[in-house]
Amino acid sequence: MGELTMVEAVAMALARALDEDPDVVLLGEDIGRDGGVFRATAGLLDRFGADRVRDTPLAESAIAGVSVGMAAQGLRPVCEIQFMGFVYPALDQMLSHAARLRNRTRGRLSCPMVLRAPYGGGIHAPEHHSESTEALFAHIPGLRVVIPSSPVRAYGLLLAAIRDPDPVVFLEPKRIYRAVREEVADDGAALPLDRCAVLCRGSDVTLVSWGAMLTETLDAADALSAEDGIEAEVIDVCTLKPLDAATIRASVERTGRCVIVHEAARTGGFGAEIAARLAETALVSLLAPVVRVTAPDTVVPLLKLERHYMPAAADIVAAVRRTMEYA
């Protein structure tokens, strides 16, 4: 067992999937010879050959569309979109075809494909390289949306996504691709989809987040404990769709307060869905309004303003303190 970064854990999961299942095929721009823009597929072309690790033209709609066709005929394609900001040409294929194939054929066909994309800000990238538009996919029936927050979860959740019989959008927070290392066993063990992970226990407030923002959320939980004596329970959503609302609700029923954190723009962000679920199912348990800490409703700025755009641990701490003012 070695200590790996998240991008190394992704690469290891892809290699494991290719090795254990001859139907798994990787495709995307520059994923073969160059090993991907973040090197998540480095070395896989030499190991598994060009038939299974395929470079494609710069054509996101074609990448997704070919993957749907492969999946319908029994393969398990894992396609990569270089950055989430380039995924929009592929939306029609994912929304109109991948998500509907099982329903359209009354169960005769399924679509066991994974669409991988690095997403999120924080790396001083140019325009269209820092989007966090996961709510677009979470809105569509028939698509799973999975977002890991650590190397261990990246490995286990990606294997689960590849083995799933239906389409999965797997979004990898590139800001933490190399920011943390964990011991990851290459044992082929998948983590369960559709479940939240409780990262730390607390009795005063529930903090809910996913992806790279778990870094700031955990930092905020530590600061609240040290400075205010507030013990926060931190939940990693992991799978946005289908949402494990029961785990979040059970936590809020214990703590009475909830702060939701995401780096996507505020309006229509997935945090609003979680807040609505809590209003419907846990209203009598809430001691304070649910608070969202998000990015503003603006285009992701270029690098000089990026730190003003991204939610910070101090913003989360301030939000929690506001919720604690309610009796």
Rank of each mutant, 00 (worst) to 15 (best):
R322Q: 14
C79A: 13
I147R: 00
I230Q: 05
P173A: 01
V299W: 12
G269H: 09
G43K: 05
A13L: 08
L303H: 11
R104Y: 12
P126V: 12
W210M: 13
V184N: 08
D30E: 15
A272S: 15
R106W: 00
A197C: 07
M84H: 13
V299N: 02
E253L: 11
W210L: 15
V237S: 09
H124D: 03
R175I: 06
V198L: 07
G269F: 05
V299K: 03
P289L: 05
L158C: 01
A264F: 01
E325M: 13
S149D: 05
D297H: 09
A318C: 04
E127R: 06
P126L: 07
E20P: 00
Y326N: 12
D30L: 00
A327L: 11
D51T: 12
C258Y: 05
Y309R: 10
S96N: 15
V234W: 04
A295P: 02
G156T: 01
G122T: 08
A220R: 09
L158M: 03
P57R: 05
A185D: 13
R104C: 02
R254W: 01
R76V: 01
A125Q: 03
M70Q: 15
I123N: 13
H128M: 09
Q73F: 14
Q93G: 00
L58I: 15
P126I: 04
P112C: 08
S130C: 06
A71C: 10
G211L: 08
I63C: 09
Y326M: 06
M310H: 06
L224Q: 08
T5E: 11
P118N: 06
V10E: 13
V68I: 14
V293D: 06
L283P: 00
R277L: 09
L157W: 04
A327E: 14
T5M: 11
S110D: 14
R33F: 09
D219H: 11
V208A: 03
V87G: 02
D297Y: 11
E20G: 03
V37W: 02
V37K: 02
V53F: 07
V145M: 10
F137P: 01
L26F: 03
H262T: 10
H308L: 15
L44G: 05
P301E: 04
V24Q: 10
T323Y: 02
D34N: 06
H128I: 03
L95A: 06
L243S: 09
